[in-house]
Design a protein around this nucleic acid. Structure first.
Lengths: 246, 246
DNA sequence: TAATTAAGTGTAAAATCAACACTAACTATG
DNA sequence: CATAGTTAGTGTTGATTTTACACTTAATTA
């Protein structure tokens, strides 16, 4: 079956966040532009991952497709956070070359619907289907093509807001994890330090954190107990919170 | 100057919330489809407000333009909350007739970028520029055209989340307001009841609420003191909150 | 001037937050 | 095999915030 893009000028961009146990990372695509005449690489740019939306799929399905094509994973946490359509968003010199090379009119607008995804880095086999993708620490991301630095920035804001409201830290961890790992995720995302005892007291109040009998292995210190997140308990116990905080 | 739509199939939809002192309302457009052959009205549908995006404007500018055209107001609170693009979102019979009548292909997708706006109903002169718009209580909205019921639903969710985080209740009130009015806004939006004394204690801790010397007039009971919201104080005192609540 | 209506105000018990330091369990090394 | 190194794990106290709860005040209207 032939699937045509719904419209060349609408796409999804996925900010795929990963956590490797130390730092928050983002999955970037390394694109090299081949000069059509010489066949030589002209320049290389880093971009977020993204794609067109096909006629027969929802935007959410398009975002899941991008994720699956790059990581081989389904059932990934995914959240739409903002749509970008500034008329000048593609005015960098290299961006224009890219679009021309891609057969698109660089003076037309691209409306880009932003999603962010969360996954545990260790689950991923990269270079999936020949694409040249890599994890980059969020704190070390340099200049990206198009307006992707801005999109990443907004994704981070959305991620911070989300993690303050809902227990999505687990999405960045393997199924079994230690409390220190979980705390580290909050610290990294919120750029703050948390008190170990207070954090544990607070998280313990949430019933959805289930201790297992297993412990860390292969560490040269006291091994941590491993926990799992119970989505069932979470769904049961979540109640509307009326912290109209400000 | 000729302004052409950026793309017929991308639009902004504005969920314009208003508050009249009692209930939360939404501004709806009453559209009557005139049969091209007979010149007679074929049917009437209610929709949210919306429009195309022009080539030379940002989506945010397009949303402000929609707002201004309908209400004559600038400087309105406006927030992008979600983009809608389900392939089947325009499959109702009347929706198709409308799009045909409008010169559009009803089988093509319309990507609609949702904004919600907040304003005090009493500031508004309706029927602006001949458009047939009206306030409808949010709790009494019936079936809308297209997928506008779903968009309204998501706008309400976004509004509830927002008001729990930021002091935007003031946007629904005239410049000077009583504490009871403010409390009522929280109660209406969050569908809950709040204790008067506790609400006042909490809101008093926020320094941005400035009492004036004025009192309500024309009420047949003890008149309430009027307050104003100080944006300056708010900007100064807001600090990052680390309530990773859940 | 009495009735009606909504405004405005305080306290006490319970829950949560914030600050803070030591012991336990494992590995690696000498 | 003893020691050093490393991270896990745990409780208390004072300050702040939340929750629950009822009466007096100031205006209008009858």
């Amino acid at each position: 079956m032939l699937r045509r893009p719904l419209n060349n000028y609408i796409s999804v961009d996925c900010v795929i966040f990963g956590y490797n146990g130390q730092e928050l990372q983002v999955l970037l695509v390394d694109r090299t532009l081949i000069d059509n005449s010489t066949g030589q690489p002209e320049f290389t740019d880093l971009t977020l991952t993204g794609n067109h939306i096909y006629e027969d799929e929802t935007i959410e399905q398009a975002a899941y497709r991008v994720l699956f094509d790059l990581t081989g994973l389904k059932n990934v946490f995914l959240d739409q956070f903002k749509t970008f359509a500034h008329p000048d968003r593609l005015k960098k010199e290299n961006d224009r070359k890219w679009l021309l090379h891609d057969g698109r009119d660089p003076d037309k607008r691209i409306v880009s619907i932003g999603y962010f995804a969360l996954l545990a880095t260790q689950n991923i086999t990269l270079e999936w289907k020949g694409r040249n993708v890599k994890w980059v620490s969020v704190s070390e991301v340099g200049e990206l093509a198009f307006d992707h630095n801005q999109i990443l920035e907004e994704a981070l804001i959305a991620l911070r807001n989300k993690i303050k409201q809902e227990p999505i830290g687990f999405e960045l961890l393997p199924e079994k994890f230690s409390l220190t790992q979980l705390q580290n995720i909050y610290e990294v995302i919120l750029s703050t330090e948390l008190d170990k005892r207070n954090f544990r007291k607070k998280i313990a109040r949430m019933k959805y954190l289930i201790p297992t009998d297993e412990k860390q292995t292969g560490v040269s210190h006291k091994p941590a107990r491993l926990y799992v997140f119970s989505r069932e308990v979470y769904e049961k116990t979540k109640k509307e919170l009326f912290d109209f905080t400000v």
